[in-house]
Design a protein around this nucleic acid. Structure first.
Length: 566
RNA sequence: UGCCUCAUGGUGUAAUGGUAACACAGCAGAUUCUGAAUCUGUUAUUCAAGGUUCGAAUCCUUGUGAGGCAACCA
């Protein structure tokens, strides 16, 4: 864990201020106990990372008296799978956080939660309702008119208890009965209009198997699970704001709870050119619009990891975006900045030509090979150097040559001179084209006096410095160029209520280049390593598709391009 | 035609009644064997109208705009 991640931001956000006030007032024995409570019904995404960094970050900031629990909110067996449990744990760990002993499942509390429900029934605060789903909805009222209480609400405690026990025994079909809290059918907050606490689900649960056929609702299970774990601060996103009174109702009406947590809400992350809801991400996966949850174009943690984005840059991004109640839309550029900042520090440099044109250095001896020493990192001598071979024929990037150069273009052009980085300067003498008029080869001459950055007296230094790969030594490799998944900033909003966000999928979001020419040292690039192909982009040796001696590279993010074509 | 929450440059945030600041993006320059990085400079901000106050981004009122709420989802 980096030190940076454990350091709170310079100025406190509203959550940290509240916690500081609690600490100052001596509440909770000076402890901060948080939790990250995903439902295992999908893969974690960058939005979850915000919550993970907050909750685990808080525990780190208040170490050693504090902790953060990982709790699976597995109260709906129809949507949850073990695959998701496993991926969530892997992602949280990869992000650099550790729940230690504190791994929990809401399903571990089913028995306790059940007894709390009997307690509420006994107190006259909950009842079994046998209205149909439709009747319940109709009787709940609307946003502007109060609801009406079901006749069943007047049943005796004894009768309710009996019915609830029979629900548990499996005497009823799904939808036949539901346990409801008795609160206020006229509340302006719809969540308080006798919310459902338990429903019947004859479903197999990934952990409890067939032990239960009634399952607690989120609104019921969540506050009580928090309390059972002695959570002090239950932090969630804004859409749960109206659930807070219900959360508090449960905490204050259930006796025998070890803790008294409170809930606070913050704005979820929205990123341009991205969709974030699990439902939509699931759709992308199920409809094969992407290659699975870990497709490098996905905003999932696993997708970002596979793209080559580091955990450190995700953490640093989460720090930059801050924490407020404002419903913001963060530019993807902010994320890219965090990624480049980290990758610039850790990536070794190498030469890779994505779209090659052949250059023949006509005055270079046919059978000669020489090696040039190149530093692996321009700002870190400790990274060492490597030898890059060169011979008479090389490849350069086709973008680095313009037959009819635009203003300000200072790479290779007819009659013009550029430096081959770390080698020498060449001058373009001739363009060879095929019958269709496509440029197939460039004939250049080199100047021996310009080796190793030298500039002969009286000569102007060429502004252009380009990368190159020796043709005889080049390694052919597959390189995937990833771009944003969507063509519009807000695919959700642009699609509207009935529209389909998938219409905005970027058809060019993944381009695979099979014949990129790489310098030979890249042949042995270990899967899972980060590289900067100089002047091109940051790349990641794909940990799954790379084979020994045949790496496959994913473009993580391009380098900033300060040259605006005139 | 309800209730709740929110509103600071293009974007994200800070300023907690006392000089509106930081980062990203943009632009300009320096530097550079990466048109990168680095460094310097720079453009641009308090939703509106009233009120309280010596003084308001901050407190109050009203308005406007945005988001959320009527699963036996979480």
């Amino acid at each position: 864990m980096s030190e940076a991640a454990a350091t709170p931001p310079a100025s406190l956000d509203f959550i940290r201020e509240m916690i500081a006030a609690d600490l100052a007032a001596g509440r909770n024995d000076g402890k901060v106990v948080t939790r990250f409570p995903p439902e295992p019904n999908g893969y974690l995404h960058i939005g979850h990372a915000k919550s993970i960094c907050l909750n685990f970050g808080l525990a780190q900031e208040h170490a050693p008296n504090s902790r953060c629990h990982l709790r699976f909110d597995d109260t709906n067996p129809t949507k949850e799978e073990v695959e998701y449990v496993d991926s969530i744990m892997a992602d949280v760990k990869w992000l650099g956080f550790d729940w230690g002993e504190h791994l929990f499942y809401a399903s571990d509390y089913f028995e306790k939660l059940y007894s709390f429900a009997e307690q509420l029934i006994t107190k006259g605060l909950a009842y079994v309702d046998d209205q149909t789903h439709e009747e319940m909805r109709a009787n709940r009222g609307t946003l502007t008119s109060p609801g009406t209480r079901s006749a069943g609400a007047d049943r005796s405690v004894k009768e309710n208890l009996d019915l609830f026990r029979r629900m548990r025994k499996g005497e009823f079909k799904e939808g036949e009965k539901v346990l409801r809290a008795k609160i206020d059918m006229a509340s302006p907050n719809m969540n308080l209009r006798d919310p459902a606490l338990y429903r019947i689900l004859h479903a197999h649960h990934h952990r409890t198997g067939d032990a239960w056929c009634i399952y607690p609702m989120y609104d019921y299970a969540h506050p009580l699970s928090d309390a059972l774990e002695s959570i002090t601060h239950s932090l969630c996103t804004l859409e749960f704001e109206h659930h807070r009174p219900l959360y508090e109702w449960l905490i204050s009406n259930v006796d025998g709870l070890p803790g008294a947590p409170y809930q606070r809400e913050f704005a979820r992350l929205n990123l341009t050119y991205t969709v974030m809801s699990k439902r939509k991400l699931l759709r992308l996966v199920k409809d094969d619009l992407v290659n699975g949850w870990d497709d490098p174009r996905m905003p999932t943690i696993s997708g970002m990891r596979r793209r080559g984005i580091t955990a450190a840059s995700i953490r640093s991004f989460c720090k930059t975006i801050g924490l407020t109640k404002f419903n913001s839309l963060t530019e993807i550029a902010l994320l890219e900045h965090s990624i480049r900042e980290d990758l610039n520090k850790i990536s070794h440099r190498a030469y890779g030509v994505l779209r090659p044109i052949k250059v023949v250095i006509t005055n270079y001896p046919e059978d000669q090979v020489e090696h040039f020493e190149a530093p692996n990192h321009p700002e870190d001598p400790a990274a060492g150097t490597r030898q890059v071979p060169l011979c008479r024929e090389i490849y350069i990037e086709s973008d680095d040559f313009m037959e009819f150069p635009s203003d300000g273009f200072h790479r290779l052009k007819p009659g013009g001179e550029v430096r081959l980085k770390f080698a020498f300067c060449i001058i373009c003498q001739e363009i060879i084209k095929d019958e269709a008029g496509n440029i197939v080869e460039l004939r250049c001459t080199y100047d021996d006096a310009t080796r190793h950055g030298k500039k002969p007296e009286g000569r102007t230094k060429p502004k252009g410095i380009i990368h190159w790969v020796s043709a005889r030594h080049a390694v052919d490799a597959a390189v995937r160029l990833y771009d944003r998944l969507f063509t519009v900033e807000t695919p959700d909003a642009d699609a509207g209520e009935d529209g389909d966000f998938a219409q905005f999928l970027n058809p060019a979001s993944c381009e695979t280049i099979t014949n990129a020419k790489l310098e030979p040292s890249l042949k042995e690039a270990a899967p899972g390593t980060h590289w900067q192909f100089e002047r091109v982009a940051y790349f990641y040796a794909d940990p799954i598709d790379s084979k020994p001696g045949a790496p496959v590279f994913n473009r993580t993010v391009t380098l900033k391009d300060g040259w605006v074509k005139k």
